Amino acid sequence: MIYGALFVLFSLPKLRKIKKIGPDVPVALRDNAAHQQPELLGRRLLKITGSDITVSGRENIPDGPVLFVSNHQGNFDIFVCLGYLEKPIGFLSKVEVKKIPVVPKWMEAINCIFIDRRNRRQALLSLKEGTEKLRNGHSLLIFPEGTRSKGRQLGEFKTGALRMARDAAVPIVPVAINGTYAIMEHNTGPVLKPASVTLSISKPLLPEDYMNMDLTEIAQRLHHTIQQSLEK
């Protein structure tokens, strides 16, 4: 945590440079520039824990904007995805994170969406913002379980955020994360331990595959795909 805080603090000059990038610069170049520091942070934090990260299926990630859909085992899931997907992503975050100094500024730079789940109207507006991000060429990551499982079990998928992909007509990429719970959640007290973590990326669900499906069917299909990856 101390390393992460210092990393973010000393990255402020780079954040200022990123904010100066003009709108005439292509989306992919802007996102790649903004993603360099978060990717580096993700990799370094996992290295500090001594964990081993194995990635499979990167060839399944399409070019252009996608919605990544992942299971959620622990707090290190975000850092695994930032560090090892090798594609710039924003993600949905609790609005309370805005109270943390500096961090929200970086999150805005990588196109994260802040959502207040206690306020239905605001939550819907946030999802509309996410749809526009996808339409404008940015990729997003969601955890449809809504909370950490803190283990290998896979919870039920909520459907609301999947509407962003359908409304923007972008591919949905299933991602299975396994092992992150052993870094932190299964330990007694504030202790980090090394773990063997796998990041498995399955073939995308393309718009032509899911446009005739309702959100519940889409969620069930993604759940099944991720469950199969976890069982491997």
Score class of each variant (00 low, 15 high):
Ser11Phe: 04
Ser11His: 04
Ser11Tyr: 11
Ser11Arg: 08
Pro13Lys: 08
Pro13Ser: 00
Lys14Ala: 10
Leu15Phe: 02
Leu15Ile: 04
Arg16Asp: 07
Lys17Cys: 09
Ile18Trp: 12
Ile18Ser: 06
Ile18Cys: 10
Lys19Arg: 13
Lys19Tyr: 10
Lys20His: 07
Ile21Lys: 07
Gly22Lys: 14
Gly22Met: 02
Pro23Lys: 08
Asp24Tyr: 05
Asp24Asn: 08
Pro26Met: 06
Pro26Glu: 12
Pro26Trp: 01
Val27Phe: 02
Val27Leu: 03
Ala28Arg: 04
Ala28Pro: 00
Ala28Cys: 02
Leu29Thr: 10
Leu29Lys: 08
Leu29Ser: 12
Arg30Val: 08
Arg30Gly: 10
Arg30Pro: 13
Asp31Ala: 04
Asp31Met: 07
Asp31Asn: 10
Asn32Thr: 03
Asn32Arg: 12
Ala33Thr: 08
Ala33Asp: 01
Ala33Phe: 03
Ala34Val: 01
Gln36Phe: 03
Gln36His: 05
Gln37Glu: 13
Glu39Lys: 15
Glu39Val: 08
Glu39Pro: 07
Glu39Met: 15
Leu40Lys: 14
Leu41Gly: 00
Leu41Tyr: 01
Leu41Ile: 03
Leu41Arg: 00
Gly42Arg: 03
Gly42Trp: 01
Arg43Asn: 03
Arg43Cys: 02
Arg43Ser: 01
Arg43Asp: 08
Arg44Tyr: 07
Arg44Val: 13
Arg44Leu: 15
Leu45Arg: 03
Leu46His: 03
Leu46Met: 14
Leu46Asn: 04
Lys47Gly: 09
Lys47Asn: 11
Lys47Met: 09
Ile48Ala: 10
Ile48Gly: 06
